[in-house]
Computed example of a mutant assay.
Amino acid sequence: MILVMGHIRMKAGEAARARDAMVKHMADVAAEDGCEHYSFAFDAAEPDTIRISERWTSPEALAAHGDQPHQKAFGRALRDYAVEDVSVKAWDGQFWRTLIGD
């Protein structure tokens, strides 16, 4: 299992403007083979910071994701917004235990 976490920091008001593009991209990526979870979330304390959360079945699935036309198009589309900083990192991991709920 590969876990990916990161953020996209945008100038004031830009994250809300990018919302529709992010929602569409999440749906496109969720349909990819090997994608178990893919989401963008607005940070409650910093609304122009988007938190990235992903879970992939394998390094190969994550690599294939990077080659998808919609992934490359999304990267290009981010140029339409005032992005201040991007950081995305991946870890190999395994399920440990449920902390709360199901």
Results as ranks from 00 to 15, higher is better:
1 M>C: 01
1 M>H: 04
2 I>Q: 05
3 L>R: 13
5 M>W: 12
5 M>K: 06
5 M>E: 14
8 I>N: 02
8 I>T: 05
9 R>T: 14
10 M>G: 07
11 K>P: 02
12 A>P: 10
13 G>F: 06
14 E>Y: 04
16 A>F: 11
16 A>G: 13
17 R>I: 07
18 A>P: 02
18 A>Y: 01
20 D>P: 06
23 V>W: 08
24 K>Q: 15
27 A>M: 13
27 A>D: 10
28 D>T: 10
30 A>V: 08
31 A>Y: 08
32 E>M: 00
32 E>K: 05
35 C>E: 00
37 H>R: 13
37 H>K: 15
38 Y>T: 01
38 Y>G: 04
39 S>Y: 13
39 S>A: 15
39 S>I: 10
42 F>W: 10
42 F>G: 06
44 A>T: 15
44 A>Y: 15
46 E>S: 11
48 D>E: 09
48 D>Y: 03
51 R>T: 12
55 R>V: 14
57 T>N: 14
58 S>L: 08
58 S>N: 11
59 P>S: 11
61 A>T: 00
61 A>Q: 04
61 A>E: 02
62 L>P: 02
62 L>C: 12
62 L>M: 14
63 A>L: 07
65 H>W: 05
67 D>N: 13
67 D>M: 15
70 H>I: 02
73 A>K: 04
74 F>G: 04
75 G>K: 03
76 R>C: 05
78 L>D: 02
79 R>S: 10
79 R>Q: 10
80 D>C: 02
82 A>K: 01
84 E>M: 01
85 D>H: 09
85 D>E: 11
86 V>I: 08
86 V>Q: 04
87 S>N: 07
87 S>E: 07
90 A>T: 03
93 G>N: 04
94 Q>G: 12
94 Q>P: 05
95 F>I: 07
96 W>S: 13
99 L>D: 00
100 I>Y: 09
102 D>S: 09
